[in-house]
Design a protein around this nucleic acid. Structure first.
Lengths: 225, 225
DNA sequence: GCAAAAGTGTTAAGGATACACCCATGA
DNA sequence: TCATGGGTGTATCCTTAACACTTTTGC
């Protein structure tokens, strides 16, 4: 019945959409256990961390050079035997980011940092495969019931960009007329006076997400397709 | 940057509906800190606990004599300063139970165990008021999007019992024709050949929840009213 | 004028909401 | 027969789903 000596890690599952593919940020471990295996970025909680979320922010930056990110707590994993070093409780965080804005950098803790397609992952350390699977489910849910998708896009985006994010996360294609109709009538988009200038075809109108409009809506819209 | 010495507690927020009122199970603390204050049942993780959920189960039984309960992880609280004894991470669990089946018993850890209406709580230890507030929101959500309500009812119940649970959790009244129509057509209820024999008026038909039917439904029903 | 992606409307079906009275029972 | 809660149906509105062609642009 003695109170157990426990160590706490905070690990982050970061998603981004790249060229229509939903990807996860992983690091290659430099040290035992699971040396040379891929794992989620993260590490032990320290005395300097004011909160669990602050610890996640710090470690994500140190290990992958990623900052300024949407973060939310995902789940806490604490079964006996999940870490060969002893009892380790892991508080997992979910991060959403815009891959285009990132410049990855391997840190001293990791010999490599890379994006991996969520449907084609390498072997993973600890129970990280289960954490990713759980977070992937959460993301699918969130994108349909919250404005989470906008965290996976730059500030200005086309309706096609937005639809690509939904299709990548949900893993299926969506009717573009119904998609546009629903979003345009939802009241969360602000139409800009700009267009994207991509190539030798019709330029697309740019939009941005209006947090203010969203907050003022009488009922939360649902983005189910 | 030193890895911090952390202690982990597991606390449980247990809900039940009693006479149309949504209530929370609290214990009166026997020791410092917050001696004589009300708090959620819970305590430190021990070496015997195989998992966080097992720890919650054990502590709930030891402190309140409650067993055989629906449990799910709620959230992990870890800000600096939330416990005067030092860094304490609390993994909070949500429990749903049938108040009629319970026999509460004060344990040696607590000088009292009691149900408190969620809308009329006493002063609470630590950040437990925030935990309850968060769990209350989660419960409101769960009852509309999962069959969680059946964990707050005995195996056999009337449609009125079921509606009472929804009204207690959501905090508003619901049109009974629409409520019955939706549940009867949802496919999750099994009609029994029994009626409740309550008093000098028409007895009500009894139903039970059919887990099997629920699992076989092509789409998850939604219990929004 | 061609290639490429942007942008647009209608119809049909199903689900949600609002609303008020009769029924069955025991005392 | 009365008091009490149990039990029922319909009309309207709104949301969803299915579906294909025209427009704009750069080359």
């Amino acid at each position: 019945m003695a109170t157990e000596i426990v160590r706490v890690t905070v690990d982050t599952l970061a998603f981004a959409v790249h060229q229509g593919s939903l990807e996860v940020l992983l690091i290659k471990r430099k040290h035992e256990p699971f040396k040379a295996c891929w794992s989620l970025p993260g590490g032990f909680l320290t005395q300097e961390d004011q909160s669990l979320e602050a610890a996640a922010t710090r470690q994500l930056y140190e290990e992958t050079n990623v900052s300024n990110v949407y973060l939310e707590q995902l789940y806490t994993f604490g079964d006996i035997g999940r870490d060969p070093r002893g009892r380790v409780i892991t508080v997992a965080y979910l991060a959403l980011l815009r891959q285009e804005e990132l410049e990855l950098k391997a840190s001293s803790e990791a010999s490599g940092v890379a994006w991996w397609p969520v449907n084609d992952l390498p072997n993973l350390a600890f129970d990280h495969a289960a954490i990713i699977s759980y977070g992937y489910q959460r993301l699918k849910y969130k994108i349909e019931y919250t404005p989470a998708a906008f965290n996976l896009l730059c500030d200005k985006f086309t309706l096609r960009d937005l639809q690509t994010v939904y299709e990548a996360v949900l893993g299926r294609s969506i009717d573009n007329r119904n998609f546009r109709k629903k979003f345009l009538s939802s009241g969360v988009l602000k139409e800009l006076d700009e267009t994207s200038q991509e190539a030798s075809f019709r330029p697309a109108r740019l939009y941005c997400f209006s947090e203010d409009n969203f907050e003022r809506l009488p009922d939360r819209p649902v983005f189910v397709f």
